[in-house]
Amino acid sequence: MRIAIASQGVEKTSAVDPRFGRASYFLVFDTSDESLEVVENNQNVNAAQGAGIQAAENIAKKNVDIVVASNYGPKAFRALEVAGIKAAIWADGTVSEAIELAINNKLKICDKANVEGHWM
């Protein structure tokens, strides 16, 4: 299983970033070899909208199965759904805690968007 965690830093001890679309990084943990990869959440700086779509694309490229963050907008949620990535809601601690919870199946999976999109 490949787990992406929205993160405020690049370490396992970094805090989980609650914002999915505008998270600073995604740390991708692979349970098969316990590797951790840092994925920058590069965003198109000019775009007022669609950060969540681009974030979903950034992690879809890394073939992840599940992502951990706490705020998902409607378009981000749709994008994750299309990509077949589960959206888990949790941002109460560190990246390593999030990995632990994900492996043990203790995270709440989101079945619809939980924040409104932003309009211009």
């Binding site: 198109n44 669609g50 879809a60 299309v82």
Partner: peptide, 23 residues
């Protein structure tokens, strides 16, 4: 296509390309 879109309105997601018409 996704790299060219200034509005994040089209994205490659897994095995498909999704368009977000509202933006």
């Amino acid at each position: 296509c996704s790299a060219a879109c200034e509005f994040n309105a089209i994205a490659v997601l897994g095995k498909t390309v999704e368009v977000f018409p509202s933006i």
